[in-house]
């Protein structure tokens, strides 16, 4: 990884992408880094494709990651991971939920959901880590904590101390949801790369 670490988090509006990027950004702040992040608000969130980018390092300039410099691509949905695959560094890693969400509408002439989505996530030669996030989240007590499971899995690939993640989760989550999410994060962090 370069002087600045770049993470792109992609998924479908409503999956908790902005919360996930907030947790990551706060963890980087807790670890003493300069941080910038960007996200999409407004109409695009209505079930559309959403991406949020987080950058941390000694000094971060652009809030947008230059193409070809993404270190970690976290895909909360596999097709949305595919949409940003070309932006990864050659040595970058893809961490993806096994989830497939078909687009709600298929405009005339548009291709269907790529059935070979897993193969295509590997097609540019990147390391791919697939996580059964919903199943693990259910194990933690709430299927909706899938995004936190994925954060846990991603944390294995980032140079941030575990304590920074714990502090960030406590700062970003409502107290009533904290326990489930702490468990979900832990289960994600314990996953092994395949």
């Amino acid at each position: 990884m370069g002087e600045v670490t770049n993470i792109a988090i992609a998924g479908v509006g409503g999956q908790g992408i902005i919360l996930a990027s907030d947790v990551l950004a706060q963890a980087a702040i807790c670890a003493g880094y300069d941080v910038k992040k960007n996200e999409v608000h407004g109409m695009a969130q209505r079930g559309g494709a959403v991406v949020s980018e987080v950058r941390f390092g000694r000094r971060v300039r652009s809030p947008l990651i230059p193409d070809g410099e993404v270190d970690v691509l976290l895909a909360l949905e596999m097709l949305e991971g595919l949409r940003h695959l070309h932006r990864l560094r050659p040595e970058g890693v893809v961490i993806a939920d096994e989830l497939r969400i078909r687009p709600a509408v298929r405009p005339p002439g548009a291709p269907g959901y790529p059935e070979d989505v897993v193969d295509r996530l590997r097609s540019l030669g990147h390391r791919l880590v697939l996580i059964p996030a919903a199943e693990l989240a259910r194990g933690a007590g709430n299927a909706r904590a899938a995004n936190t499971v994925l954060m846990g899995a991603m944390s294995r690939h980032l140079q941030l101390p575990e304590d920074a993640w714990q502090r960030s989760l406590r700062m970003c989550l409502r107290p009533s949801l904290l326990e489930v999410n702490m468990r979900a994060f832990g289960l994600g962090r314990q996953t092994q790369d395949i």
């Binding site: 479908v12 509006g13 109409m43 695009a44 969130q45 209505r46 079930g47 559309g48 494709a49 652009s62 947008l64 990651i65 230059p66 193409d67 070809g68 097709l79 949305e80 595919l82 949409r83 695959l85 070309h86 932006r87 687009p103 709600a104 509408v105 298929r106 405009p107 548009a110 291709p111 269907g112 959901y113 790529p114 295509r120 097609s123 540019l124």
Partner: peptide
């Protein structure tokens, strides 16, 4: 974007990869 500014300034970065072809769009609904 940083990518387009690099191009405008001829900052010597290699040309970025093109997005993968044939991906279904996911517009907001």
């Amino acid at each position: 974007s940083p990518t387009s500014v690099a191009r405008l300034l001829e900052a010597g970065k290699s040309a970025p990869r093109a997005p993968l072809p044939d991906l279904p769009p996911r517009p907001p609904v």
